[in-house]
Structure formats: C-alpha cells, structure tokens
C-alpha cells in the first residue's frame, strides 16, 4: 500500500463521515461542519491520488484551492441562512414536521 492510496482512503473515509453527518445530524451547525469535513475528504483524495511518481502535480492543487474558495462561499451562505432561521424560529434545526416527507395536502 503506497502513500497515495492511504491519502485516498483517508479522504474517502472523511467523505463518508461528512455525508453521514450532513444527513443525520439535526443541528444546522453540525450539518455545516459535516459539509466541510466532506469537502476536506474530497480535497485529500484529489491531492493524494494525483501524486505521480512522487512529484506533486500542480493542477489538482489549483483545483483544491478553487474548491476551498467555493466551499468557503457555500459555508458563509449556509451560516447566514442558519442565523436567519435562528432569528425567526429560535432553533438551529430544520423544522421536523415536513422534513423528508412529501406534502400530501388535504
């Protein structure tokens, strides 16, 4: 097992953890953190897998940088929405009644 594969596997594990958190954690802040963990996992896979013959490849590093910027923007937006939700409903979680259910009016 080489180093690249270790990175990739770790990254994948982080990704899975992140996805699980994103879906299962009810608290919004935890969801947002989980998203960031998921993102880090992806970036790790990206940089890890792309080490060809020991020399770092600049392209994925550029891509990861871009990815981080995008992730920050997304995190900021998520935080802003979570704040608004907190102000309005007093809770840091998505309301339960309709979550994950289709609305069968009537």
């Amino acid at each position: 097992m080489n180093a690249a594969l270790v990175y990739a596997l770790t990254g994948t594990a982080l990704f899975v953890l992140g996805v699980a958190g994103l879906i299962l954690q009810p608290h919004l802040l935890r969801k947002i953190l989980a998203f960031n963990i998921m993102g880090s996992g992806i970036f790790l896979v990206m940089v890890g897998l792309a080490q060809r013959a020991g020399t770092p490849d600049p392209v994925p590093q550029a891509m990861v940088l871009t990815g981080i910027v995008v992730a920050i923007a997304a995190t900021a937006l998520a935080l802003a929405l979570a704040r608004q939700l907190l102000d309005m409903s007093g809770e840091m979680r998505l309301p339960e009644e309709k979550s994950g259910k289709d609305r069968l009016d009537v």
Partner: peptide
C-alpha cells in the same frame, strides 16, 4: 436551507467523482 444542503451534497458527490477521474 434544505435546498442548499441538498445542492452541497450533490456537488460534493460530483467532485469526489472528479477527483477519482483525475
């Protein structure tokens, strides 16, 4: 918020695919 989380999850999965392809 729900839309954002779904969108982030979706693009996350997509990006992991991109990473594997690369």
């Amino acid at each position: 918020m729900r839309y954002l989380l779904a969108a982030l999850l979706g693009s996350g999965a997509y990006l992991l695919g991109v990473a594997l392809l690369y």
